[in-house]
């Protein structure tokens, strides 16, 4: 008998897998980016089914919102076109695809066979966001502060890397002043 929980899980999971496969099939990067947004939104639904409201909200705000906007912005900034397909090596096709199939079937068999006893109820996680905030600022205070330093370094690195090389903007104004 299918419970509502299982039906919702399968629906969100189907959207996830369809979006992931679509990301591989599409040739234009903007289509891949939009299907990745669909995957992330469906994953937020899975997190809600597990009871992780905090993570679901973060998934929508940070991943589907901020990071994907960055991706779409860069795709449009660089005016990325349809990618050219190049011929892959024949060894990869002959050995890689059967090897990957065998490996994934093995992993799925082991996971389904040996960890199938535990079941996860709807909203199984006990923690409201308040508890998570408490943990974040007591037990995980040092990692939290280290990640803030990491973000700071990333911001500075991104600004340095993406800004124009110093020679070209320096030439323009000085020449104008001389003229």
């Amino acid at each position: 008998m299918l419970s509502v929980h299982l039906i919702l899980f399968l629906a969100f999971g189907a959207v996830c897998v369809a979006g992931a496969v679509n990301l591989l099939v599409q040739r234009h990067p903007i289509n891949s980016a939009l299907s990745l947004i669909a995957v992330m939104a469906a994953l937020a639904g899975e997190y809600l089914l597990l009871g992780a409201e905090f993570v679901a909200a973060l998934q929508v705000i940070v991943y589907a919102g901020a990071i994907m906007v960055l991706f779409v912005f860069v795709i449009m900034l660089l005016n990325a076109g349809v990618e050219e397909r190049t011929q892959g090596s024949r060894v990869a096709i002959i050995i890689g695809i059967p090897g990957m199939l065998i490996g994934s079937v093995l992993v799925a068999w082991v996971v389904l066979r040996h960890s199938g006893t535990g079941e996860v109820a709807v909203g199984a996680l006990p923690g409201p966001p308040k508890t998570i905030g408490d943990m974040l600022f007591h037990e995980f205070l040092l990692p939290f502060e280290i990640t803030s330093i990491l973000i700071l370094v990333a911001i500075m690195g991104a600004v340095v890397l993406a800004s124009k090389p110093p020679s070209s903007p320096a030439e323009g104004p000085t020449q104008k002043v001389k003229d």
Binding site: A66, V120, G127, I132, L136, I155, L161
Partner: peptide, 28 residues
């Protein structure tokens, strides 16, 4: 959710932070 340990969600938070930093630097 399976083991009722909240630290898993904190780890997801850290993974997201690292992913955001990685996306910013990578796209630059």
């Amino acid at each position: 959710a399976h083991w009722h340990v909240l630290a898993g969600q904190i780890f997801v938070f850290f993974v997201m932070v690292v992913a955001a930093a990685e996306a910013a630097v990578g796209l630059a």
